[in-house]
Amino acid sequence: MDETEVVGLSVRPRRRGLPTLDIGPFFMFFGISGTDHGREARLQQRFEQEYFSNVVTLHLAAALSPGTYTLRGLPDEANKRGWTVGPEGGNPTGHLSADGLEELRAWMRRTPGQRDRRVRPESMSPPA
């Protein structure tokens, strides 16, 4: 794909779902044992929601087609999880940690001599 310029970005906090209760200790107290097959996936999902708590939308000069992208030219921390463009196309959205967001903001406000905000979108997966 051709390079495009990052015009701006918008940030909003990630919505948190309802807290989930871990009822395993309750059952263990009464002597009921078993294997919780989904616990690892729930813990991983909870970690990702808490650690990558910022939803960032990059506003690009050219719209992208639907799919998942890596934007070459962005800082590594900002590109760690990839960027998603919804079914209607347009601007990429990603989930960033506080460190990734700070690194991206520093990249956006570089000195005037370093003002090149161009990125090269590379598709990670075909559109759904």
Rank of each mutant, 00 (worst) to 15 (best):
F27T: 12
L18P: 01
S125A: 13
G34L: 11
G82W: 03
D22Q: 05
R14Q: 10
L104Y: 02
E3T: 10
P126I: 05
G31F: 01
E88A: 15
V55P: 04
A62D: 12
Q44P: 00
Y69I: 05
G73R: 01
E77Y: 00
G17F: 11
P121A: 00
G113K: 00
D36C: 06
D2G: 03
F29R: 14
Q44Y: 04
T70L: 12
K80E: 14
R39C: 05
R120Q: 09
P13H: 13
E50H: 15
A61Y: 04
T20Q: 08
G82K: 06
R118M: 08
L74K: 01
Y51R: 14
F26G: 13
G8S: 13
G38I: 02
E102Q: 09
L64N: 03
G86E: 11
H95C: 04
E77L: 09
F52S: 05
V119N: 07
T20N: 05
T20H: 03
E77N: 02
S33I: 10
D76V: 00
P92A: 03
V85A: 04
R14A: 11
S65M: 07
M124E: 12
D116T: 08
P13G: 15
S10L: 07
E50M: 15
M124T: 08
S125Y: 06
P75W: 00
R117F: 06
L58P: 04
L43E: 12
E40M: 12
R110I: 08
L64G: 02
G86Q: 06
S123C: 08
H95M: 06
A41H: 02
R105M: 14
F30Q: 07
N79Y: 00
G24Y: 02
L101H: 06
Q45V: 11
Q114W: 05
S123E: 11
F52E: 06
R15P: 14
I32K: 01
H95Y: 06
F30I: 11
N54A: 14
P66Q: 03
W83Y: 00
R12I: 12
E50C: 15
Q45K: 14
A106H: 14
E3A: 13
G86C: 05
G82F: 00
W83A: 00
S53V: 12
P92I: 02
Q114S: 12
L64V: 06
R105L: 15
G17I: 10
G24Q: 14
S33C: 09
R118N: 02
G94T: 08
S53A: 14
E88Q: 15
A41M: 05
R16K: 15
G38Q: 03
E5N: 09
W83C: 01
R16I: 12
W83H: 00
V85Q: 04
A78Q: 04
N91H: 10
Q49Y: 13
